[in-house]
Design a protein around this nucleic acid. Structure first.
Length: 346
DNA sequence: ACCCAGGCATTGG
DNA sequence: CCAATGCATGGG
């Protein structure tokens, strides 16, 4: 059973002096703020963060074998005494355990650059929020938070399907069980690190096996179908990446368990589109209604119009900053408010 | 013991 | 086009 393979013995033998790989990032990039967004709660086991150090286990393609497991540590690169060039070009440092060959290192660099949207230039967004009392305050408190992105389309859609309808805390429990059951793992210094399960691994699973984790029949079927589809169409994500937003929404919506809400989150959190606003999202509607509607409730279509009009190409950033503000307690929603949104929207 | 939470597919008007 | 319903778990 490959999912249970533990390779800590191998790792213990690896040399500890690792050569970091540096990838560029804007000077204002905030690793902690961005990485924290991956974590809904402390129950998260795939994306780990301690201090300013983000660590995650990846299955990387390498020269030596088709794929190999590496624990990748991401830290803000510090300008050291003898690297003048680094001072002028701030970035992120990646280290690998076990040490990786060049192909695996490049693969990781691509994934990490995508996950942290290091190529986004947020100056336009900052200018936009200066005239916005609500987002302006959130932006100042989360300066350098870039659009966080899933490592794969499969992960983006699977996590969204898990989140559908049920409370976030519940979904995190389901995700942890899912990852513990199917994800590759290694042990380092007494701590387990888990890779997000691959479509290959899930495609071979049984419906009853997923049900036994606590997933509904519908979620189990959707995730199984998705894994098998991804396996049958390996170029699907890359093909979609060339399409416009509405085309991607249309095509993703043909998959079981994927509706507009899930597709819009995937547009933001996988494809990295900055001009999306998932106005059907219950929490987002509640926040926006409280802070931007002057009393009344936004309908989904009214909110989408409002957001695209007001934030335009930065709508996705407005969305994730609103959530960041909510999680940090800068923005608040009373229970009654949420209840009212529910009753008045049905 | 309830009630409800960052939807979706299906069914029926 | 819109409304109602089942799904599932766990925290308040």
């Amino acid at each position: 059973m490959t999912a249970q393979r533990v390779i800590c013995d191998t790792i213990a033998d690896m040399p500890d002096t690792l050569l970091p790989l540096i990838i560029p990032a804007p000077k204002s990039f905030n690793l902690s703020a961005t990485a924290r967004f991956f974590r809904f709660s402390d129950a998260e086991i795939v994306d780990t963060l301690d201090g300013g150090r983000y660590r995650r286990l990846f299955q990387l393609s390498s020269f030596s074998s088709a794929t190999s497991l590496h624990l990748v540590t991401v830290e803000t690169a510090k300008a050291t005494s003898n690297t003048a060039s680094l001072r002028n070009a701030p970035g992120l440092s990646l280290t690998f355990l076990p040490e990786a060959d060049d192909r695996a290192r490049n693969h990781a660099a691509q994934i990490v650059a995508s996950m942290f949207s290091t190529r986004h230039d947020l100056r336009g967004f900052r200018r936009l929020t200066k005239q916005d009392a609500v987002l302006g305050a959130v932006e100042r408190a989360h300066r350098g938070l870039h659009l966080p992105r899933y490592a794969s389309l499969f992960e983006a859609l699977t996590v969204s399907i898990l989140l559908q309808q049920i409370a976030t805390a519940v979904a995190v429990v389901l995700k942890r069980r899912f990852v513990e059951r199917f994800g590759e793992r290694i042990e380092v210094e007494g701590q387990y690190f888990f890779a997000f399960p691959s479509p290959e691994r899930i495609a071979g699973a049984e419906h009853t096996e997923l049900r036994s984790l606590g997933l509904s029949g519908a979620k189990a079927q959707s995730i199984l179908d998705l894994a098998r589809f991804m396996l049958s169409a390996p170029a699907f994500a890359d093909e979609l990446a060339a399409e416009d937003n509405e085309t991607i929404i249309e095509r993703l919506s043909t998959l079981r368990g994927v509706g507009r809400w899930t597709a819009e989150w995937a547009l933001m959190l996988y494809f990295g589109r900055t001009d999306v606003f998932p106005a059907g999202d219950l929490a987002l509607r509640a926040i926006a209604s409280k802070y931007y509607s002057g009393g009344g409730q936004f309908t989904e279509s009214a909110l989408r119009r409002f957001a695209l009009e007001r934030w335009g190409v930065w709508a996705s950033y407005a969305c994730i900053y609103l959530f960041a503000g909510l999680r940090a307690g800068l923005l608040t929603l009373e229970r009654q408010r949420i209840a009212r949104v529910l009753s008045s929207s049905s």
